[in-house]
Amino acid sequence: MASPTRKPRLAVWKFASCDGCQLSLLDCEDELLAVAGALDIAYFMEATRGRIEGRYDLSLVEGSITTAHDAERIREVRRRSRRLVTIGACATAGGIQGLRNFADVAEYAAAVYARPDYIATLATSTPIAEHVPVDFELRGCPISKRQLLEVVSAFLAGRRPVTPAHSVCVECKLRGTVCVMVAHGTACLGPVTHAGCGALCPAYDRGCYGCFGPKETPNPASLSGRLAALGMDGGQLGRVYRSFNANAPEFRQESQRHGRQDEPQDDQG
């Protein structure tokens, strides 16, 4: 713990991302004053002007690594941070921009930009943990405000955050939601997806989209068999795992099992 005379210094860093996760912090509204009371918000571009200087007790890192410049910058952030916590699917899995990992990035750039030669980018979008040691990963696209407060509170108390790695199904059952897959035949990634959202989509009669990435010990191959029985063809199975957490290893491998033959193959798979 930091000494009682000085509040721990918090920094919020952005890499390749949409800002949605760090905005969850501002979205805390009722709790924001308590956060500001407990921590010295030393660097948070969305909320304050600030300069990178000195050291930070807690760094929240949003976004993935997609450029050589960012690959260097995250090392600097790590050097300055006592605890580094990644927040959101970009930082923990590579994000939606991780779709480039399945394609030729030069082709993409040529299709999108008038002058692709101005674009300096890596061929891949990778999670922070592939570049520097990470103390804790908070999942979600976006992260849950409640879980963010839990992570910060746990950091302040010096305890392990309560962010269970079990399935979204557990959250559905805890809140009493009727299973949309069993009772309605709706395709749902809940059985392979990490809890944290509170099983939001099934409560609104939608299947889980897998926003929090793979749960602990997932079995997507078995789930795919069920999804196929519900009517998904190979192309759909290839795509269903490819959203915000497309690059998370278990989702990546399962999507490639059903994916096109002409795309770059996963050398880790």
């Binding site: 399935s167 199904c169 557990v170 059952k173 805890l174 059985p191 749960k215 010990t217 078995s222 789930l223």
Partner: peptide, 11 residues
């Protein structure tokens, strides 16, 4: 091979 370890059965 089939089990999802999703915990639905126990819930």
């Amino acid at each position: 091979e089939r089990c999802l370890s999703c915990a639905n059965c126990t819930m």
